[in-house]
Each structure stands twice: as C-alpha cells, then as structure tokens.
C-alpha cells in the first residue's frame, strides 16, 4: 500500500449502504482507491460484490453514504455521466448489443465517448476518426476475425471481450470488472485475463476486479479484499489474506 500513498485519490466511498429488506448486500462500506491502484475483490455468492460495483457506477442508488471522484461528490450523478467521467464497469452476465456487429458494438462506445450523441445527419461511415479508433480497438482486443459478425452468433468468451473492449473505448480512469472469466473455459480464461491486465497496465488504470478463481487472484494482484455479507472482512496481499483463518472459513465453508 505504501507506494500508492503518494498518488492522488481517485475514488472515495464513504459509508455506502444498500439494503434490500433483510438482505444487506452493502453495509456501511468505505473504500479509497488511488490512481493506478489495482484491487481484486473476492467473496462468496451473494456477498454483495456486484451491488458494490453498481453503487460506484450509479446503476443503483445507495440508501446512505457518499461517493467522490477526484474529490468531487458524484453520489447523485447518473450512470451515463459517471461513465463519461471515467468510471466504467463490465458486466457479470452477458450485456452486449446482440443485434449489431462486433464493429458496431465497439463503434457505439467510441461515439459515446467522443460525445457524439446528437449528430443526426452525418453518415457514420464518414466519421473517419471514430472508425479508425474502433478499428484500432478491435485489433487491440484480437477481434479482427469476427469484426463483421453479429454478436448474437458469437460465444460467451467473445461477448466478455467485447464488453471489455467497449469499456476501454470509454477511456476510463477506473475500470470495474465484474467476473470477467465467469462461464468461460480454462484456456480462454487466461487469454482474457492477460488481455485485461496488459491493457490496465498499459493505460495505468485503477481497477477493481471481481474474481472467483483464487489462483488467478494470487497471480495477478498485489492487493485483495475479501467481502462477506456486505462488509469487508480482510484486506492485504493475497498471500497474507488467504492465510487468515476467518477468510478460509468463509471462502471454503460456503462452498467456494
């Protein structure tokens, strides 16, 4: 942690809370993330990981608490504006635009990132800058082979990569990655993770990565947080955290 302390804080969350009746997926969580800091987040099913990320992106409103981005309060800011300001999230389940080609999926994000929402009369093929950028991203994420395929015909692994590519198109400051490898085969898993980590490093992004595979977590992060029933119960280097008894109990005990 020490080397992160000189870097300015990117996101601070203060006593965030979200209850669904009796269920308390996020229970007064405070969190600080510096620029370029990469965290992994682990926890059993239903621990509240997705809910926490959704609170940060604004898809869900907190019952209580405050979120700041670079010192500025953004608790009430809607998700689309947060995305513009650099908080971008990938989805745990498939969330891509099924009826479009891979190229159009990524291109949509590029248009959005460039703020071109309302250019009503300009042909998309004439937007050279955007099309070039889209092409570059497609190449970067190794999607050239399926560039013009309709996303609905592609496999789950591809959809995950497309989701990530769209997030990078937004030029994020912090990337929230919700289980990038869930439902993906062993081989593809490492490919996706490599791509993701390389890009995060290359762009010097901050990131929170939710991941169930503890081997992957150990390999790729310096710092990990364990979440249980809406609270953080341990934080530190993976080796240190996973040697704690309570953590083992929670992660193994709940059939992790």
């Amino acid at each position: 942690m020490s080397n992160n302390e000189q870097k300015p804080l990117l996101i601070t969350a203060d006593k965030l809370r979200k209850y669904y009746g009796e269920v308390k997926p996020v229970n007064d969580i405070s969190l600080e993330i510096a620029q370029g800091q990469v965290l992994t987040l682990v926890g059993a099913n239903g621990a509240g990981k997705t809910t926490l990320l959704n609170l940060l992106t604004g898809l869900i409103r907190p019952d209580r608490g405050e979120i700041r981005l670079l010192g500025e309060k953004i608790t009430g800011v809607p998700p689309d504006q947060r995305a513009k300001r650099g908080i971008v999230k990938t989805f745990q389940l498939e969330h891509v635009f099924d009826d479009m080609t891979v190229f159009d999926n990524v291109r949509t994000a590029c248009f959005s990132s460039a703020g071109k929402h309302y250019s009503l009369f300009k042909d998309i093929e004439d937007e050279n800058e955007i099309n070039e950028r889209t092409g570059a991203l497609i190449e970067l994420f190794d999607l050239t082979g399926v560039r013009d395929a309709f996303v609905r015909n592609l496999g789950h692994g591809y959809k995950k990569v497309i989701d990530i590519a769209m997030c990078f198109a937004m030029k994020p400051k912090i990337l929230l990655v919700d289980e990038p490898t869930s439902g993906v085969g062993e081989e593809e898993k490492y490919k996706i993770m490599d791509l993701l980590m390389n890009q995060i490093e290359a762009n010097n992004l901050a990131a929170i990565i939710v991941e169930h595979d503890l081997h992957l977590v150990k390999e790729l992060s310096k710092e990990t947080i364990v979440m249980c029933d809406g609270e953080f119960i341990a934080r530190g280097t993976p080796d240190h955290v996973f040697s704690q008894e309570k953590v083992i109990e929670i992660l193994v005990g709940k059939g992790f």
Partner: peptide, 27 residues
C-alpha cells in the same frame, strides 16, 4: 440520413441493452 447516423446507432444500442447503453455513457 438520420437512420444512417451515429444517433440511430446509439438508439439501437438502447433498445438492445439499456443498462449497457447507460454504462457506456449514452444519455
């Protein structure tokens, strides 16, 4: 022309997946 613009591309994104559209910054 409108149908061939980035505007309509983004509308299709909204129809396809509203949450994703929102989370990539589409108002």
């Amino acid at each position: 022309r409108v149908l061939n613009s980035s505007f309509s591309l983004q509308l299709r994104a909204i129809a396809g997946d509203l949450e994703k559209a929102e989370s990539i910054g589409i108002p």
